[in-house]
Design a protein around this nucleic acid. Sequence first.
DNA 1: TTTATATGCAACTTTTTGGTTGCATTTTCG
DNA 2: CGAAAATGCAACCAAAAAGTTGCATATAAA
Lengths: 112, 112
Amino acid sequence: MPPLSAEIRSSAPVFAALGDETRLRLVARLCAGEPQSITQLAAGAQVTRQAITKHLHVLADARVVTGFRRGREQLWELNTRQLAEARHCLDLISRQWGDALARLKAAVEGES
Amino acid sequence: MPPLSAEIRSSAPVFAALGDETRLRLVARLCAGEPQSITQLAAGAQVTRQAITKHLHVLADARVVTGFRRGREQLWELNTRQLAEARHCLDLISRQWGDALARLKAAVEGES
DNA sequence: TTTATATGCAACTTTTTGGTTGCATTTTCG
DNA sequence: CGAAAATGCAACCAAAAAGTTGCATATAAA
């Protein structure tokens, strides 16, 4: 299982960042394409603007979103590269699982 | 406003379960195909067997693994269906992002 | 039937997380 | 300039998470 190590270490924080409904909602919102401000993203949320800010920083630490300043507002946009890497991690696991099952099946059939 | 599709919302707990390095390692280990016992899975880990047991239950609550008893040992195996759903969730987000970008690009070109 | 193996259960400690409130700072605009 | 808008910062809180230790229980094996 050495081949997975690197992917795992880098992907775990991404999964952790996505593992909260509020944050997943933010990510889904940012799919709209255009960067959005904190106030925009906090509009309609069940928690305060400061809570949203914290969540955005968690996502930023995992490199899922990137923020930049424009005038008096802080805009955030999606970083699809990290999402792609997370998907790749799941792909790897699924594929190894498939391979292992195939080997097991072959071994069992070989015994009979 | 979009209350986030049920599909995406149901993925948050799965991501949360995968969002821990120790647990992601367990998942990777269980890719081997054959179910493994707690003692096996705890071998070589940096934490105690009880900690591993807790992690396995977290994964089980998220339906990422399933456990069953054989003799005096508790065996755990991977539940690839949940992993596939998580992957699908990432696919959805990426695709929505792609579509949004395409629309933005079209809009900008239409203005010129 | 002892004995060793594999696990379960429960109490407890320490960090981390998610959230809040209050106030300061920066920028825009009339 | 002065007020409104958009954030930033810091202290504080409660609950959940991660991990430990100690002991009980069940099963396999000698």
